[in-house]
Amino acid sequence: MLAHAIFFYFFSILAIFSALMVITSRSTVNSVFFLILDFISVGCLFIMVGAEFLGMILLIVYVGAVAVLFLFVVMMLNVAQQKQSWFVGQKSTHIPSGLIVSVLILLELLVVVGGWKYKENIMSSSNLVIDTSITNTHSIGSVMYTDYILYFQLSGVILLLSMVGAIILTYRKRENVKTQSYLKQISRDKASAVMLKDVEFNKGVKIDD
């Protein structure tokens, strides 16, 4: 039990520390790196509880894909400069709207946390029947694809919709872009590709049109 406790406190302290560093570190790239560390330590906590499937999925989806894109955007956009121009510049119009949003969120949190009452034994973990012969991947699957199939599929459809929407919003057809057409390349033959021309002196031939 001792080793378990040591690991638990190690990972949870790491998680809280990196979560604090995400919001306090000066450089945006550093805060993304701390976000990644946070994801990893939370994933490790999941694995410690025995939810190894959730932990691995957290690692694959958030660390392996989402955070990479975060890092991409932060590295490319040079956010530090923008922050400078937003909050330090002469006409800073973002602070009032930011204040309103953050006060609203604080009030919401107060309402939610303030109405929270402690109830004993509403679901004691010792009463839960856990079938150890089934791995938790199997049990998650059997719940998700039977009782909650509608919600599961609907959330998939919503994700697909947002993906299509994002592509439509950003897609624009550009003119004069040279692209490789495999069909065109393969369907070339000798008759259409090679021709014999009498070239006039000092005139040359016009190609590639």
Binding site: V29, F33, I36, E52, F53, M56, I57, L59, I60, V63, G64, A65, V68, L71, M75, T135, N136, T137
Partner: peptide, 24 residues
């Protein structure tokens, strides 16, 4: 472990960080 293949997949997807960090 039970989720061996997921573990392998997760670790190989983390591999990209070494490269991004080095490059940046």
């Amino acid at each position: 472990i039970n989720v061996g293949i997921l573990y392998l997949f997760a670790i190989s997807s983390l591999g990209v960080y070494g490269i991004i960090m080095g490059g940046w």
